[in-house]
Computed example of a mutant assay.
Amino acid sequence: MPLSLRPLLVALACVAALLQSSASATDATAPSLRTQARVGTGVLDLRPAIAQPGQRPARSSSRTQALATFADTRTGQQVVLQRDSGSGWQTVARGRQHRTGSTIFTLPDTTSLYRAVALTRSGAARAVTAPVRGRTFGTLFRDEFSGRRVDHTKWTDQPTLAPAYMRMCSRLSWRARSVADGVLRMGVAHDPARADRTCTWTLNGRSGSGPYMLNTQLYTGETFDFTYGYAAVRMKMHLDKGMHASFWMQPANWYTPGDPSKGTEIDIVEFFGRTKKDSHIAAFLHWYDSANAHHKIGGKFPGANRLKRRTETWSNAFHVFSAEWTSDAIVFRVDGREFHRETEIVSRAPEYLLLSMLTSDYELEKLTPAVMRQSAKVDWVRVWSH
């Protein structure tokens, strides 16, 4: 071999080795799409940070989350989130498929192109979502309850209970709530102004008696309302029956009988306490027909229990309860996973937020001193634009 060719051949060998090394590194981070991988058989859905289960209080996040869902559910199988680097797909996060068929990721940035890949046990790609461009969600309302008292530039103690006929033995008061350590605690208390009196009530053919009570109900009707978006609360519920905690919305311009599109009550989450038979969260919509008769749809959703960890209850951990509200639907979620969707009755009018812990008259018989010491804990409330 002529001596003049040796440097050229050495250089070519080095380039080949470098290319092989680069290809190996790419294969390690991005599974190759073999013939059995079905592109577009999954969905990558972007939303604000509405998944944040945990035992302790934590600040809400401004980052964007992605829910990767595949029709072929294989609980525990690995799913990876990949970002387009411009020269190929790079794995930026890994997760396991939830029993609902979904995996939740947090995007590293909001400008790149992303896809999710479901892997086989051997690590090969078996299904791939279509690429989705990252995006941000604007914040319309936010309260982290970081002070020592309720922020009255955001919340007001609602002056009257609604509907009043269900709570003849209760009135609203700031004395039944407190703020400390970044958490709003909502409870109930005996009414000291009527401590020497007994309340007698009749409701739907039932009757009873009990002490007069103070309830908690905060609302943003004087400071904030919105039309369409994501409304979310991070909340740890009380434990037992006797009172119920709620995060809900009401129409800013009140109801128009016969036209629910002009405003409905949207109960994003309600919890009535545990029993031996159930410990389920509830969600409802309320409206009035042209004869001013009350209607509601919704109820308790036992299936939502599948969306939390088996070791968790609604009372021993914080969960994010949210509603995604558009002109066509209201989607109810727990920690980013859907448990109910309503498309028949949808408000298209501005709504304001409410937080409450109430004792309806029929609940008073279960309101023992032990239950009265309990409270629902609200970590944060946030509303994002759609």
Rank of each mutant, 00 (worst) to 15 (best):
P7G: 12
P7Q: 08
L8S: 11
A11T: 14
V15Y: 11
A17M: 09
L18R: 06
S21A: 13
A25H: 04
T26I: 03
T26L: 07
Q36P: 09
A37E: 09
L44W: 05
P48K: 08
A49R: 05
G54D: 11
A58Y: 09
S60F: 13
S62N: 15
A71K: 06
Q78P: 04
Q78G: 00
L81P: 00
Q82P: 00
D84H: 03
G88S: 00
Q90V: 10
T91N: 05
H98Q: 13
R99P: 06
R99N: 10
S102N: 05
T103Q: 00
T103V: 02
D109I: 02
A116W: 01
V117M: 01
A118S: 11
A127F: 01
T129G: 03
P131S: 14
G134M: 00
R135Q: 10
T136I: 07
E144H: 02
R149E: 13
T153M: 05
K154M: 06
W155I: 10
Q158I: 06
L161V: 09
P163L: 05
P163S: 06
Y165L: 06
R175Q: 08
D181F: 09
D191T: 05
A193L: 13
A195E: 12
T200F: 12
R206L: 15
S207A: 15
N215Y: 03
T220I: 11
G221N: 07
Y228V: 02
G229H: 09
G229V: 11
Y230D: 04
A231I: 05
M237S: 15
L239N: 10
H244N: 07
F247G: 09
Q250P: 10
Q250G: 13
W254H: 07
Y255M: 04
S261R: 07
K262E: 13
V269P: 13
F272M: 11
G273S: 12
T275P: 09
D278S: 15
S279Y: 14
I281T: 14
F284M: 07
L285M: 14
H286K: 06
S290A: 04
A291D: 13
A304F: 04
K308V: 13
N316R: 12
F318Y: 15
F318P: 14
V320F: 01
S322K: 13
S327F: 03
A329M: 03
I330H: 08
E344I: 01
R348Y: 03
P350F: 04
Y352F: 15
Y352S: 10
L355T: 10
S356T: 15
S356A: 15
E365A: 14
T368W: 07
P369D: 03
V371M: 02
K377S: 15
K377E: 15
R382T: 13
